[in-house]
Design a protein around this nucleic acid. Structure first.
Lengths: 147, 147
DNA sequence: ACACTATTTATAACGATTACAATGTAAGAA
DNA sequence: TTCTTACATTGTAATCGTTATAAATAGTGT
């Protein structure tokens, strides 16, 4: 399943003339297997055992390459650093205000909102972003215990 | 109209024991009257004629005070710096990918999405954020001319 | 093997934001 | 009023995420 995703991603990259280096392979693999939405630093730290000489810049460079290839989305939420999301199907995110965890969920597209917005503002609409904020079950449990 | 908003905001601050300094008054006033969604630096530069000695830190400090008081929302979108939005009614934003302009628009709440998300993920939902991205009429005109 | 280009690395630079210490200012008590 | 205390502002240094740069390295095609 995720093997297929990885292969597809690598093929997509190759077809646009991007070389598959060991670092790129590892970053992609990590992103696909990680269910969280890692920051650049998460990725860097996860791979520094395998690539002791890898630079943070490499992570950023390649995340940008992947973003331009449409393989990865950059999520800029409230916290200081961006999180990166391997693009699979269209989905939305629900975010825990306590621990920062991001969980995917699916919902039929909000085309109607896009149309209305376009009509009211005269914008030519490209896409939208929707996030829901709250507290995850783990953190609900934790604060319940703490009290 | 916006005078009322300003007065309400000042009253709200006073009631929580926050002092109304000239700088705070000016920042609030600027935010209420500005239809854009200024960055901290926008505010700083707009007020440096009136307050030549004001520090950037003061702007940040007070934006944080306002945010904690619920008067102001911080919008962290793709670009490097946060934008700040005086809270009036609930509304959504449509953002121009060319020039960064942010325009408000209204849409009945997306309660149904919140419920579904809560049900699927087990989160306790607090609120959500929705933004639409596209190109504003000005920028459509500009690129049309340039070609 | 050679030349050419893409990639990585290491490090410096940058920009937004925050922390800190010193100074200033307002409000209440004596 | 004057003193005291707590809160605000200022200026500057520090921090953190990210990007730019230049040198070193590795692939690719000839």
């Amino acid at each position: 399943m995720s093997e297929v995703q990885l292969k597809d991603a690598l093929d997509a990259l190759k077809s646009t003339g991007v070389r598959i280096t060991p670092q790129r392979h590892a970053i992609l693999e990590y992103m696909i297997h990680s269910t969280m939405h890692p920051t650049a630093d998460d990725i860097y730290r996860a791979l520094e055992k395998t690539f002791p000489n890898m630079s943070v810049a490499t992570v950023y460079n390649n995340l940008r390459v992947f973003r331009k290839a449409g393989l990865v989305k950059e999520l800029t939420y409230g916290d200081s650093s961006s999180r990166f999301d391997f693009v699979t199907h269209d989905h939305y995110h629900i975010i825990c205000n306590d621990c920062g965890k991001i969980v995917d969920f699916h919902y039929p597209g909000l085309d109607e909102v896009e149309h209305l917005a376009s009509h009211v503002t005269g914008f030519q609409v490209d896409y939208h972003r929707l996030e829901i904020y709250g507290t995850c079950q783990d953190c609900i449990g934790k604060t319940a215990k703490a009290q």
